[in-house]
Simulated scan of single mutants.
Amino acid sequence: MRVATHSGSFHADDVFAIAALSLLDDAAPLEVVRTRDPQLLAAADVRVDVGQRDDPAGGDFDHHQRGGAGERPNGIRYASFGLVWREHGARICGGDEIAERIDQVLVQGVDANDTGQTISRSLVDGVAPFTVSHAIAALNPNWDDAPTAADKRQAFDAAVELAAGILRREIAAATSQARAAALVRSAIARAEDPRLIELDRGMPWHRELIPGAPDALFVLYPREDDWGLQAVPRQLGEFANRKDLPESWAGLSDAELAAATGVADARFCHIGRFIAVAGSREGALALARQALDAPGTNV
């Protein structure tokens, strides 16, 4: 498949769009042409981020035309990555659920950056988030490097390779997260005390448990050679917990923590009071019962 995109500086939008096309299950290695020549563009099977048309059936995925290429229900406008993903994402991921997750965690941020929409702000003066869009843009040759055409193409190809790797990893992570979500829902349903959710293995639980178990305060789970007790954050992405572990445990480990708790195999409590560790399930359960009964404001 021959894919055409614009020449000049590349951005996360066009780079990720081409990376996505390279992951189509039936895609032979792409022949990518970087040009603004109308004849070369017309000769391509697919045009990305160039051509001023949004017509998937005709192979056009651009958003620079008058009026743009539409927006999502949340107001984030489609850029070329989003247009390609809307058309092919489910096929690349093997289903709509994973494709939607990738759209949320990756595609929309790239699209917003490319269409000039601010979706995050710095909370610290002089310090700004470094996003995947910045990372891709940083692979462009510097203006004073005097790059040759070969240098520019090498930089572009490296950016596409990086983007494809990120996409593969995010798809794998989202697929794994979907499996974990089902297990977390099952753990919530079988919990004897809704304040304490026990998982049968370590897994990502925040995205499913925080909104799905509003009464949960702590999560208990096995680790490689011990057991963890972790506080549930108030909201996704926040560090503040619904209830912290007891203040008297903060920063203690081994004999000191065992003496403070009366749990013989207590091993560690983080000074931030969000995680404690014991050598056995019984020890972790004993810590959990104490943490549940300890004074503290539940939110």
Rank of each mutant, 00 (worst) to 15 (best):
T297C: 02
E97P: 04
Q117D: 03
V110H: 13
L252N: 06
Q108F: 04
D13C: 07
I271E: 11
D193W: 14
I166H: 11
E170Q: 13
R77G: 03
H206L: 11
G89W: 08
A266Q: 03
E192K: 03
A266T: 04
L217R: 12
R53W: 00
R223W: 05
T115L: 09
A240Y: 03
D54H: 04
G51E: 00
I210V: 15
W227N: 03
D200S: 14
A20G: 12
E238M: 07
D151P: 01
A231W: 03
F268D: 14
R185D: 12
A163C: 09
A182C: 08
A216C: 10
G109D: 13
I136D: 01
A284F: 00
Q52T: 03
G51S: 01
I275D: 03
H64C: 07
F274V: 04
A174M: 08
A138F: 12
L167N: 11
L199K: 06
P56K: 00
A19Q: 14
T115F: 00
D157V: 12
D144L: 15
A258C: 05
V84G: 03
R289A: 12
S122T: 09
Q230A: 10
R47I: 02
G109N: 14
A231S: 15
A291N: 05
A250Q: 15
V15E: 10
Q230G: 07
A240C: 11
A138S: 15
G58E: 02
V127Y: 08
A182T: 15
A150M: 05
A79Q: 07
T35K: 13
A164T: 04
P246R: 04
L106G: 03
G82A: 00
A240T: 13
A137I: 08
L220G: 00
L106A: 05
Q39P: 02
R267D: 08
Q230R: 11
G68D: 01
D225A: 13
R273L: 06
G67V: 07
S122E: 00
L41S: 01
M203G: 10
D293E: 12
R101L: 14
A173P: 02
L24H: 07
G262E: 13
A79V: 02
K152W: 06
G228A: 15
A149Y: 08
D157N: 07
R234W: 11
D103H: 13
P214F: 04
D55W: 00
S176H: 14
R34P: 06
V232N: 10
T5G: 10
S120E: 06
A155N: 10
R72W: 09
T115G: 07
I136Y: 06
R91N: 12
E247C: 07
D265M: 09
P73R: 08
R201E: 14
G59N: 01
G51L: 01
F268I: 11
A17E: 06
D96K: 11
G58V: 01
R34C: 10
D37W: 10
F218R: 07
Q290A: 11
E192V: 02
L41H: 11
V160L: 10
V48D: 00
R190L: 05
R185G: 14
A294E: 11
S133P: 08
N142Q: 15
S133G: 08
A231Y: 06
H270W: 03
A276S: 14
E170D: 10
A174D: 09
A128W: 13
P147V: 04
L287V: 13
A187C: 04
W249N: 01
G296M: 11
